[in-house]
Design a protein around this nucleic acid. Structure first.
Length: 482
RNA sequence: GCCCUCAUCGUCUAGGGGUCUAGGACACUGGCCUUUCACGCCGGCGACCGGGGUUCAAAUCCCCGUGAGGGCGCCA
């Protein structure tokens, strides 16, 4: 049974990079009929909050990602929040101490920092060893620690040997002997460090495959050594490339929208964002650009993942989003656009509710020209704005003909029985036949008269949705007495 | 300083020794369709980081260089 996990730190919004990792894990689990585990890595107590955790969960759910085991749904390998697993880490750190694979360090965090700086300044690799810490391990210090109730940190005795693993994306990765020194696994506050907690959890939660960002490639060395110390089976690793900003630097807040929440608010559809994110480092075997979630699940494989970093291009994301907006059911697009419409002041929720049928048609008439849901209200304005058309200048024959034709149209309109797009088309065509004005001129004049704009939805839609009274009034005003 | 990774059009990518005068998509651009814009359709522009090898043959394999990213934290 394939078991994968997504392990976010609840220190803020879920970012696109994390979301993409979650997506890959989700696709992988679904593709192989495995389990997707959600684990919260909240050992950085200073930055972790329950609010952030909830935001991350909400974003995941919004993207359509669900989990089989997690802090909210439980599971047989819980708890799924690292702060609730402290005793487990202590227990396993103890095991390592018993075998000599780990040891206590009586130096303070500050002293270690100094040690680090000194090594760096001397042009040496900042690698610690048991020997280096020995000077701090005096009976006086032990007494002192005891008196103050401080616990020593626990460091892992890193074997000075070569390590390697086969990465599903990058191939074989080798670490030379002595690439790393000893490192902390348990802090003096009793909390585990990242690299230790990850391994213990993945081991105990029986994770078989780890798909994560390639900023963890180097960390794998530490993790490999810990697995080895426990004589545990090493999972398969696959390190996905980093997502970069348009300037080629690692994507961060200064690049603008980077959280899933941002994109949700900008009017992206979750499946469009999924599609876009998935394509940032993975490609469909048939080279498809637009695909459904089930298509991605069916065709997902680690072989098709790309090892080079990808730049986040919002233009492309919007293009995909526009595609989904055009293809989705009008019911859903309308539903999604209502909050934006209300926000823009065009309608209230209750107005939207009672005019839903009309609204759907209006939204449908503008969706083609839109890339995000948030652009819809702006396009919808033509149906709400009060227009005071000015008198058509009939000084030349051409314009006069157009004005006459418009006038004829209103007269015919008065006698129309049914008010629907089909009848409107017929009526316009009929009116055009009477005195045959310049067609192109007629249409653009009609648009100008009705909306005071040069572009917008199709004219039939505008006439139909504006309604007979408004259309007739506006034409009357523009055509004048003649 | 040490270690690891990456490198194909502006962007996302396909391609992993001959099928590559390098394919697709976004963007840009020309045209068609259309009442305008958009959508759609048809075209155009546009790339194998540099240098050495290996080979009959290199975008593809190897080495060096360069550039970029990451790690070497009692951050994750």
């Amino acid at each position: 049974m394939i078991r994968v996990r997504f392990a976010p730190s609840p220190t803020g919004f879920l970012h696109v990079g994390g979301a993409r990792t979650a997506l890959y894990n989700y696709f992988y689990a679904k593709h192989y009929g495995g389990k997707f585990i959600l684990r919260i890595e909240d050992t950085d107590i200073a930055r972790s909050t329950r609010e952030s955790e909830q935001m991350v969960l909400d974003s995941l759910l919004w993207l359509g990602i669900t989990w089989d085991e997690g802090p909210d749904v439980g599971g047989q390998y819980g708890p799924y929040r690292q702060t609730e697993r402290i005793n487990i880490y202590k227990e396993y750190a103890k095991k390592l101490m018993d075998t000599g694979a780990a040891y206590e360090v009586y130096a303070s965090a500050e002293e270690i920092k100094v040690l680090h700086e000194n090594l760096m300044n001397a042009g040496k690799a900042p690698h610690y060893s048991k020997e280096m810490f020995k000077v701090y391990d005096t009976p006086e210090r032990r007494d002192d620690f005891e008196k103050k109730g401080i616990k020593p940190a626990i460091f892992f005795n890193m074997p000075r040997k070569e390590y390697s693993f086969n990465d599903g994306i990058k191939g074989e990765i080798k670490f030379k002997k002595g690439s790393l020194g000893d490192f902390a696994i348990l802090r003096s506050n009793g909390f585990p460090t990242y690299n230790f907690a990850v391994v213990i959890d993945d081991m105990l939660m029986k994770i078989t495959d780890i798909i994560r960002g390639d900023d963890h490639v180097s960390n794998t060395l530490k993790q490999l050594a810990i697995y080895e110390a426990f004589d545990a089976e090493i999972p398969n690793f696959a390190h996905a490339s980093t997502i970069l900003g348009p300037d080629g630097k690692k994507l961060s807040k200064r690049h603008g929208a980077t959280s899933i929440e941002d994109f949700k608010m900008k009017g992206f559809l979750p499946e469009a964002l999924d599609n876009f994110l998935a394509l940032l480092g993975w490609s469909h075997p048939e080279g498809k650009d637009i695909m459904s979630i089930s298509d991605m699940i069916d065709n997902f494989s680690i072989d098709r993942m790309n090892s080079s970093p990808a730049i986040f291009d919002e233009t492309r994301a919007k293009w995909i989003n526009g595609h989904f907006i055009r293809e989705e059911s009008i019911d859903r697009i309308t539903e999604l656009s209502i909050p934006y419409i209300v926000d823009s002041g065009l309608m209230t929720y209750s107005q939207a509710e009672s005019n839903l049928k009309w609204l759907k048609k209006a939204v449908d008439s503008v969706r083609k020209g839109v890339l995000t849901i948030s652009e819809i209200p702006e396009k919808l304005k033509v149906y709400f704005d009060e227009v005071e058309p000015s008198l058509i200048d009939c000084s030349d024959e051409k314009s006069r003909e157009i004005a006459v034709c418009l006038k004829n149209m209103t007269e015919m309109m008065e006698n129309m029985d049914a008010w629907n797009p089909k009848e409107i088309i017929d009526l316009v065509k009929k009116a055009l036949k009477v005195n045959k004005p310049d067609r192109k001129g007629f249409y653009s004049c009609l648009r100008k008269v009705l909306t005071d704009q040069d572009e917008g939805p199709e004219l039939v839609d505008i006439i139909f949705l504006l309604g007979r009274t408004k259309v007739m009034n506006r034409i009357d005003k523009a055509a004048g007495k003649l």
